[in-house]
Design a protein around this nucleic acid. Structure first.
Lengths: 268, 268
DNA sequence: AAATAACGAGAGCAGTGCTCTCCTATTTAG
DNA sequence: CTAAATAGGAGAGCACTGCTCTCGTTATTT
């Protein structure tokens, strides 16, 4: 079974189907032979069709046979390119993580580098906009895990941590610039048991922020996605909150305050 | 087709399978005839088996045929009791909402009535404990919506709002007792567009809390579920946070502060 | 040119939700 | 107490799913 190169071909196909400015993959793999090119193209087509099905019908309704039909090919043929339905889900997971990451990076990058609140708000707004625009794909990333499916960490942690990485960069940048603090008011003390986790995180990302602000940053992170998930998953009901943009904006402002970021108009 | 009483029989069956102290249904329906009793029992069995399947295999893997097998009956027979797979999902949704609601009510009720922080922390802890204990059922309630399935609002809004109702009661009680405020520090102003939504909520629940605190309460609500969802759905990864109880406790404390609740040890 | 690898088509298996018909046991009405 | 009405279980069947295996054809490599 000489299909050892399938994996790399698949990776190449996915990389080829992305157009983000911050494409993580070095894409050093040249596709010389026509067969390899055709293969990569087919995989890219499968991912594209899968993405459409995912967006329209949701993750649990994603059907390899339906993708095969759209591709104009019999169902068993797609198994030449994709190992299983799970494998396709993994590809779509990576695809979605990267698209969200690209959107976030673009939004954050559009704000001035020293406008930390602006960058924070841009990040939150980008997450919300993408989630509202791609609810099914957002659900794949941040909703209930697909039953029986466990994302392979070695392939998804990279793209899956782009948002939190961006957020942590903003907060750390603000701290290094002397513009992140909770001075003036005492909050709850950070439990001693968290010190180890926080130290590891600080080392991993090369951060300077102290425990207090790091823990609050984690809360801002989970709260951001909590607010977005409630809105996307319909927990607000049809009419509890109608001014959702204003609600989210206000929540973002409070979360920035929680994280220690001075508000928009504060003196620089 | 004289199956008009099926619905009420089903409701009775579900009600019979519940044992919560705050059972919403008046349960005035007596089951006189043996046939009605047998029917209610069968429906209750189906819900029980469905709950087990749901807990073990997850919502998307819930199979009516598998439930039928466990029930020792052929698959078409269960359609005499449950209209469809969706209908069973709805029953399980209501069942889970009520179990969570019961857990929250019990935990909140165990704290002194004037210990508002204690009640808030009890609510949060109960939600987290239940979610960690029943991840699949929590996912059914607060994860990605099951594709193609839309919960019928007229049957689920009641049980589905028990947690937020309890939370709002705590915050309103604290406010009426003069123990909920953000005095001493100015937060972001509530956007004007939110006034209508907040007024409607205040009227619906008969609240006294002003806009500022109400909006912050909503943030505490979404943030609480954001933190629980991240933990249950595995967003933290296997080892980013190991001291999860401490992390959650700290987040709860900060969220109470955000909502305007004085910390645990504050003077009464 | 011959060997090898890739790949599409088709059949098939076990599972799913759901419908329809048939038949029996139970309940209700006269 | 008998006869009609009804509930409910069994089974076959339809269309769908993921996935495997074989078979023949095409393209590439040696």
């Amino acid at each position: 079974m000489p299909d050892a190169r399938i994996e790399s071909a698949i990776d190449a196909g996915v990389a080829a189907s992305q157009s983000g400015p911050a494409g993580a993959a070095p894409a050093a793999v040249r596709l010389r032979t026509p067969r390899e090119r055709a293969r990569a193209q087919t995989v890219a087509d499968i991912v594209r069709l899968g993405r459409e099905h995912l967006a329209v019908h949701g993750a649990a309704a994603l059907s390899l046979r339906a993708v095969a039909r759209d591709l104009g090919v019999v169902s068993s043929a797609v198994y030449r390119y994709v190992e299983s339905r799970e494998e396709l889900l993994t590809l779509l997971l990576i695809d979605a993580y990267n698209e969200l990451g690209d959107a976030v990076d673009a939004a954050v990058g559009a704000a001035p580098e020293d406008d930390f609140y602006g960058r924070f708000a841009a990040l939150g707004g980008a997450v919300r906009d993408w989630a509202l625009h791609e609810p099914s794909r957002y659900a794949l990333l941040f909703g209930s895990p697909v039953p029986g499916y466990r994302a392979p960490a070695e392939r998804t942690t990279g793209p899956g941590t782009r948002v939190i990485t961006a957020l942590v960069r903003i907060l750390d940048g603000a701290f290094r610039a002397g513009r992140l603090s909770t001075t003036g008011r005492q909050g709850p003390a950070v439990p001693a048991g968290l010190a180890g986790d926080l130290a590891k995180i600080r080392a991993e990302f090369g951060l300077a922020v102290p425990d207090d602000l790091l823990a609050r940053g984690a809360l801002a992170w989970t709260s951001l996605f909590g607010a977005v998930s409630f809105e996307v998953f319909g927990q607000y009901g049809p009419d509890t909150f109608t001014a959702r943009e204003e609600l989210f904006g206000h929540h973002l402002a409070v979360l920035a305050d929680v994280a220690g970021l001075p508000p928009a108009g504060a003196a620089r």
